[in-house]
Design a protein around this nucleic acid. Structure first.
Lengths: 328, 328
DNA sequence: CTGAAAGCGCTTACAG
DNA sequence: CTGAAAGCGCTTACAG
């Protein structure tokens, strides 16, 4: 247990330097001694202490992944891609669920700093706050940081952002073009991302001279069903609803059907994210594809470049597109 | 950037020992010097190197979480709970997606060993293999390991297992009791967990004197729809189907409806896992609740005890229950 | 109450 | 081709 290179050195009858050299495949070791050391390494199931190694090399070979909650499907793609990608380069991923508060988020950044991660990824617009910005300035002022769906004006942080504003505006315009005149919006939690969606909705609706109706639903299918029912009873003229999240659209569609409305004939529905829910639901959801996969891949590739060249920075905006299925 | 306690010591006009003592809240430091050091620590945004600290203390304060793919909802609850729980104790979580091969799984265990994690959790029955067992014996022979939904006869590995065998058998018995006589099973990928489910199905069906029909579907809603359609056309007498995974049940239910079958009147359907899909789907799915949450909580609590007392070990079996909704 | 020294497990000039 | 020594950033006896 806990063999060190000194133990290996003793068993092989060489010095620790030599053991270190064969472990790191340094040239200039006699073939026979290299082979002997390798054999002993193998027979002993030796594994180098990355911590000790990191201390001398001034590297940790770790990257930090911050999400608010990994159980949220939306965070999972990015976390997966980053881990897979960097593991191949010998990096390990520290995953932190930062939670819903600024304290949790700032604390998480401190933790990553203590662990001396060589780079970090923030996944989700909820990290867009002054507290997080300050924590980065104070504790991660010089390692590459990539912000998935958010932006900080800091020279070490890159971003890959979904243009939810225009994605939502385009959805409104599409509904208008297909004859809808009473387009409502059902929002979820107040996040920077959702604010962009609502702003896009409001802009398009205003430009088209339509009225604006915005409701807020609890973030569950059932909550959305309730909200949808209230909306329809107070505004029976509603002929289209856009939802900030696919799951809400699923709940809403189901309730409309239960109320005897036809979807999409009476009420068209558009969700957001093109999540698995959108194809599983019945009827299948039309949705604003916010290109989560592309966003994650972009983060991963930015981070890769930034790891090579720590002053590298990039800002990418990904355009959503409308996916039409059975609810429009 | 990269301040050490020596830098802080210099700024405070004390020795590194003293700085270390105040960082670690050791007693016996004059109040005034403690306060001065604390102030400088704060003003400098100092954060201790956990790696260096770990080297001297012979601890890493890291725990390893192995999943085959974090994008799989099924792995996410356990990963979340472990991270949340141990972060409070000052631990960080290393998340590894081990992939679908024994090489990937064994490699992941080696990586965790290199990082000197103090404990590890394997999430998912797919880790049930000789290769993984051997990797644990070779590289983690003495740290606490908790296996979620699997078992190794090793003195350092605990387990929390869902009794999918009897869960599935009970579902068959329930269907029989409600008059179904042609109960089919639609399986997914070949995993230890799915093998237990199939075995439970076969046993119950045999005991009840019913025929056994087992199909294998691709692991998507669409794949399951196809398989379901084939099943129904070759065995039109089928009056109930159990699916190894909720998602497959959703796809199957939808196809049955499209084919003009009534659910549950013509064909009853039971999924497995009581996943979010089961309440979102239309109609809402009856399902075998494999108690994922309870399983994860159990792992977390076992691990907690094992961290305190490294020789602690526990084996828990969690009984699934049947959740009846609209498809039975 | 405080500091100098040794040591955790490595790597890497520097000698030979 | 190989080894002894120093040093990475900490903590903790040991002195004083």
């Amino acid at each position: 247990m806990g063999l060190t290179i000194y133990d290996i050195a003793k068993r092989a009858g060489v010095s620790a330097s030599t053991v270190s050299r064969v472990i790191n495949a340094r040239p200039g070791i006699k073939k026979s001694t290299r082979e002997k050391v390798e054999r002993i390494l193998r027979e002993s199931n030796f594994s180098v202490s990355e911590a000790a190694r990191g201390l001398v090399n001034q590297t940790s070979r770790m990257i930090g992944i911050l999400v608010s909650d990994i159980r949220n499907q939306h965070h999972t793609e990015g976390a997966y891609m980053i881990e897979q990608h960097f593991r191949k380069k010998g990096y390990c991923s520290l995953l932190l669920n930062a939670g819903d508060t600024d304290e949790g988020r700032a604390e998480s950044i401190k933790i990553l700093s203590s662990r001396r991660v060589e780079a970090a990824v923030l996944i989700g617009s909820v990290f867009q706050s002054d507290a997080v910005r300050k924590a980065i300035e104070d504790y991660m002022p010089s390692i590459p940081v990539v912000f998935q769906n958010g932006f900080f004006d800091l020279q070490n942080v890159s971003s890959a952002i979904a243009d939810e504003f225009s994605g939502t505006a385009d959805a409104v315009r599409y509904l208008h073009k297909t004859g809808r005149r009473h387009i409502a919006y059902i929002n979820s939690n107040d996040t920077p991302s959702n604010r962009k969606k609502v702003a896009g909705y409001e802009k398009a609706v205003r430009e088209l001279g339509l009225g604006s109706i915005i409701c807020i639903a609890e973030d569950t299918a059932e909550g959305s069903a309730e909200t949808t029912e209230k909306l329809i009873s107070s505004h029976p003229e509603t002929d289209a609803i856009i939802y900030a999240v696919d799951l809400l659209a699923v709940g809403g569609a189901r309730r409309l059907l239960d109320l005897g409305k036809r979807v999409p004939e009476d009420v068209a529905i558009i969700g957001t994210d093109n999540s698995p829910f959108s194809t599983i639901s019945n009827p299948r959801l039309s949705t604003i594809d916010t290109k989560l996969y592309e966003l994650s891949a972009t983060c991963s590739s930015i981070l890769e470049k930034a790891i090579e060249n720590p002053s590298y920075t990039e800002h990418v905006v990904v355009k959503p597109s409308l996916v039409l299925r059975e609810t429009t």
